[in-house]
Design a protein around this nucleic acid. Structure first.
Length: 638
RNA sequence: GCCCGGGUAGCUCAGAGGUAGAGCAGCCGCCUUGUAAGCGGCCGGUCGGGGGUUCGAUUCCCUUCCCGGGCUCCA
């Protein structure tokens, strides 16, 4: 008798003509009710799909990641149907599920604004109430062309598909070119909310039409939707732009220019601490720090290839007679110039130059985003000149630095992306042999270090592949932080060489790497990571002394001086507010320690310590507090 | 750069075709405080800039700058 295999290994007999839904029903009516799609031999299929003898059968519910994905995809379809009903003549393009939700790109007949979203949502609920069966239908390429004769976008998609492999999903009058799978009917949609509208180019190319993209989120239940919306709310509260303003770390001003962050005293202290830490780690790992200025003769960038490949990101030139200068967008040519200032033997290598360099990149105005995308950035950049044989070791060393630093900040949530070139893209310097070699070196080094990574074509720098460490901000946007890049091309262009053991001239390999990426972006991510409650070693102000009454001010200043003497950053709150108000204000400023001093403390050289996030108090000698705090700083406790 | 939305006091926000309001902050007093807002008073804005419509615009229209969400590109 025919049967399917269940995930627990059991066999379940099937009847001829059984569909996935029938099997689910047989396993249990409750399961059948929760079923979204089925997994047949590991492949997601509609519940309408016929099952075959010997297949491995698994029910996928809304609660599983795959089920959620399907649910969101089907919600996108419902939204598309609602839009077509409300804006007849609109043309659908693509509408995939994404993390937490979905979007659909539409060429809208008319215009949709944020105010229209509730109306579309309302219509989606109506479509859900209609409980329309969702059915897959195979069509030929010719039929698909006919269905979409008025939709150039879908036609373009159809042309990329193989005849015999084209499916359309229908629910009521609505149909969409789609490979599925989908939930069985619109009545099975969960809780959803349309979030925002954005423009998106067809196929992501700015030469194409701008479509209207509508983002939504979808969850199995109302409760989960609410929980998600609450999470987003909380995330916005730790947005580094908000926290940076509240804690008075940095600001922006149109008087200075977009994308140029201005750091207030506390923000600059934070920068200083972050950079000092990386400097210490780099020094320990044998890097030497250099400084190469802000302005560079353009001809250097002509030689390096930047002028050709990077010009869109450079500020326009400053012209001085026949000489054109550029604000420095990258350090590599400057560091290679440093390298070339002396003759090198293989015995000197590797040479490791590090620099906290302020770079200027002319980002498009729409790209600017708080500290995570700016026009003036401070890169903790370094260039390692080494021999072919040293590449692996130097890569491993760079990796070690990156991991040590990320670890210190308590960052565990990052992804490593191996950014390769797209061989068909002309933005890359061409030298196939060298590219392949660099890509091979990178892969091997990551494998050797046991680091998992994804490969991404078309994301490489123009001169070589890179391993990028990507972190997400609180709003789920991904940013590149650390990067390690292998470059076989630029040293040759700039004439870098060393005398080898064989007495011959050789071109060194160049490793580019940045640990935190840029101080600004990293700070943005750090702020969000800690929600502004920085660990003690990183806090611009580590403690505030709060006198109970004005007559304790003198003692408060004495405590401050004593702590400052041992290297702690301490303020006295001498504002005219009440003691409780000072506690409130300083707690809101996320000061790690509040030291309350009154008659009791003044009498016995002590402080009453209130730790951030902790209402309970602890009295101790001032010296003991100093000792504890210094200990906490020394180990960079997070 | 492009699509959508938004700029009202230092900050958070309300309001409306008849030239603006709250809280906090600031300033001045009083209070001298024991663990998250003591009390009172005062100051504060050509409602982002420019142009238009109107008897009258901060409100409606156009334009420009800036900010936010995306797209593309990147640290």
């Amino acid at each position: 008798m025919a049967a399917v295999k269940l995930p627990d290994g059991k066999e379940l007999p099937i009847e001829p003509g059984d569909r996935a839904r029938d099997v689910a029903e047989r396993i249990g009516p409750r399961l059948a009710r929760d079923a979204v799609v089925a997994k047949l031999n590991g492949k997601l299929e509609d519940l309408e799909t016929p099952v075959r003898d010997g297949e491995v059968f698994e029910v996928v519910t809304k609660d599983s990641p795959e089920g959620l994905y399907v649910l969101r995809h089907s919600t996108a379809h419902a939204m598309a149907q609602a839009i077509l009903e409300l804006y007849p003549g609109s043309k659908l393009t693509i509408g995939p599920p994404i993390d937490n939700g979905f979007y659909y790109d539409v060429e809208v007949a008319g215009r949709i604004t944020d105010d229209d979203l509730p109306r579309i949502e309302e219509r989606m609920r109506e479509i859900s109430d209609r409980d329309l069966p969702i059915r897959m239908e195979e069509v030929s390429k010719a039929e698909a062309r006919e269905l979409y004769r008025d939709n150039p976008y879908k036609l373009e998609l159809v042309e990329d598909l193989e005849d015999g492999d084209i499916t359309v999903y229908r629910q009521g009058d609505f149909f969409d070119l789609c490979r599925g799978p989908h939930i069985p009917s619109t009545g099975r949609l969960g809780a959803f909310k349309l979030q925002n509208i954005a423009g998106a180019y067809w196929r992501g190319d700015e030469k194409n039409t701008m479509l209207t993209r509508i983002y939504g989120t979808a969850w199995p239940t109302e409760k989960e939707l609410k929980a998600y919306l609450r999470r987003m709310e909380e995330a916005r509260a730790r947005d580094h732009r908000k926290v940076g303003k509240d804690l008075r770390l940095f600001t922006f001003s149109p008087d200075v220019g977009g994308g140029i962050p201005l750091f207030l005293p506390k923000g600059e202290m934070l920068r200083h601490l972050m950079e000092g830490y990386v400097r210490e780690v780099q020094t320990r790992h044998g890097y030497e720090h250099v400084w190469t200025g802000n302005v560079v003769n353009e001809s250097l960038y002509a030689k390096s290839g930047h002028l050709e490949h990077y010009i869109d990101s450079m500020y326009p030139p400053m012209v001085d007679g026949d000489t054109r200068y550029r604000l420095k967008p990258m350090n590599c040519p400057s560091h290679m110039t440093l390298f070339n200032s002396a003759a090198h033997s293989y015995r000197d290598l590797p040479v490791r130059y590090a620099e906290f360099a302020t770079l200027y990149r002319y980002e498009k105005s729409g790209e600017l985003n708080g500290l995570t995308r700016v026009r003036s950035l401070t890169q903790d950049d370094a260039h390692v000149f080494c021999t072919q044989n040293q590449v692996q070791e130097e890569f491993a060393r760079a990796l070690e630095i990156v991991r040590e630093v990320l670890d210190t900040y308590g960052f565990a949530e990052y992804r490593v992306q191996l950014s390769m070139r797209d061989p068909d893209d002309t933005k890359y310097i061409t030298d196939d042999a060298k590219w392949s070699r660099a890509e091979k070196e990178l892969r091997e080094a990551l494998d050797r270090a046991g680091i998992a990574y994804d490969e991404e074509a078309g994301e490489a720098a123009f001169y070589g592949p890179k391993a990028d460490f990507m972190a997400k901000d609180v709003l789920g946007r991904e940013w590149q932080l650390s990067t390690i890049q292998v470059d076989f091309l630029q040293p040759e262009r700039l004439g870098c060489e060393y005398v080898g053991e064989d007495g011959q001239m050789h071109t060194p390999v160049l490793l580019h790497r940045a640990v935190t990426g840029s101080t600004e972006r990293f700070m943005g991510v750090v702020i969000e990571h800690f929600a502004g409650a920085f660990p003690l070693w990183l806090s611009p102000i580590q403690a505030v002394v709060i006198p109970v009454a004005d007559r304790h001010l003198e003692y408060a200043r004495k405590v401050q001086a004593e702590l400052a003497d041992v290297g702690l950053r301490v303020d006295v709150d001498d504002s005219p507010s009440s003691m409780q108000k000072k506690i409130r204000e300083n707690a809101r400023q996320k000061i790690p320690y509040l030291l309350i001093v009154g008659d009791d403390e003044a009498g016995e050289e002590s402080v009453n310590v209130r730790r951030r996030g902790d209402k309970k108090q602890e009295a101790m000698k001032t010296g003991e507090f100093a000792e504890r705090a210094l200990g906490e700083v020394a180990v960079k406790a997070v």
